[in-house]
């Protein structure tokens, strides 16, 4: 469902071609799709029906919508699309971290909206693994974000070893 000028990237920065996900308006029929994304509102209203179908289900969370309402059903939800309508709105970072660390959600968490290279480093750490990136030079942007820092201080969803762990047990080789 990436916009034409956007590129969909996976967590390694590779372009995902043929995005299978189809974003549905709240009144659009679900028939004929392999993978659909609905709003939280629609999910809550049509939960039983949506979960019983044989398509893969994704739910879109706006910044003011936390993941708590999805908690009981996360095993049957394949992807969460977290919206960043504006660059500086950081609520989605909390959403992703709660999904990964509290609910151990293992499906895709995709960052959609106003996503540029400057958030990527934080998005990767917070647990996102798909990005609809607006930078035209997406490869350079992704590399820039990924290569910027080889040291982090906090444990996070990317499982990079924080400085304190490396201090205690310095690795003999490799970055992490």
């Amino acid at each position: 469902m990436a916009q034409p000028e956007m590129r969909l990237l996976d967590r390694h920065g590779r372009i995902v071609s043929g995005d299978e996900w189809v974003g549905l308006a709240d009144d659009a029929p679900t028939a004929g799709h392999m993978a659909v994304v609905v709003s939280l509102k629609r999910f809550l209203a049509e939960r039983d029906v949506l979960l019983s179908r044989d398509f893969r289900l994704g739910v879109r969370l706006d910044p003011n919508e936390g993941p708590e309402a999805l908690a009981p059903d996360l095993e049957r939800i394949s992807a969460i699309f977290v919206a960043f309508p504006v660059f500086r709105d950081g609520r989605g970072f909390s959403t992703a971290r709660i999904l990964r660390s509290r609910y151990r959600f293992s499906g895709e968490i995709r960052a959609v909206g106003d996503i540029a290279r400057d958030q990527l480093f934080f998005l990767l750490r917070a647990g996102f693994d798909a990005f609809e990136l607006r930078d035209r030079d997406h490869e350079a942007a992704f590399k820039w974000a990924q290569d910027s820092f080889s040291v982090v201080y906090q444990p996070a969803a990317d499982h990079a070893a924080p400085a304190f762990a490396r201090r205690a047990h310095p690795p003999s080789e490799g970055q992490f």
Partner: peptide, 13 residues
Amino acid sequence: RQWSTLHPEFSFL
């Protein structure tokens, strides 16, 4: 200082 530096969740407050 260390915990808050480039925090993965709290850099866009």
